[in-house]
């Protein structure tokens, strides 16, 4: 895969937003092995990191960062000490900062939901 300057920008932006070293990842896959939600993801957590490493911007439209609930199962397993949920958050933030909310308030049925669920959902899925 050809890596252009603009592709390199993706790594730089994700590293800046997450505070993590993307190139520290050597694809051992422990994050994906420990993630309880991989069934729901279109890219495994280690694949998300790999796509950022190679500057593949298609990762920005992946479902995986929205499924990730920052439960930190992966974070306690990463042998390189990377905070993978922070990398997922960086990808969410890149989308949210384009003024595109993941949650559509007009379609949301909040009936019966506790405030703790709604507030956390809005903190993660709206800009």
């Amino acid at each position: 895969m050809k890596i252009t300057n603009s592709d390199q920008d993706l790594v730089a932006v994700v590293e800046e937003l997450s505070g993590q070293n993307l190139y520290a990842c050597f694809q051992c896959g422990k994050c994906s092995a420990s993630c309880p939600f991989t069934d729901e993801m279109d890219e495994l957590p280690n694949q998300v990191i790999r796509r950022v490493q190679i500057g593949d911007k298609r990762i920005l439209s992946s479902r995986s960062p929205w499924v990730c609930a920052s439960c930190l199962s992966c974070e306690v397993e990463c042998p390189k000490g990377n905070d993978i949920p922070a990398i997922m958050e960086a990808i969410r933030e890149i989308n949210l900062r384009r003024n595109v909310d993941e949650t559509d308030l007009n379609k949301l049925d909040t009936d019966g939901l506790p405030e703790i669920a709604l507030v956390s959902n809005f903190r993660k899925k709206t800009g």
Partner: peptide
């Protein structure tokens, strides 16, 4: 005992 319950996915992704 330490596996995530799905957290705020309960708002928009109840199946999880």
């Amino acid at each position: 005992h330490s596996e995530c319950c799905g957290s705020y996915n309960t708002v928009e992704n109840q199946e999880i």
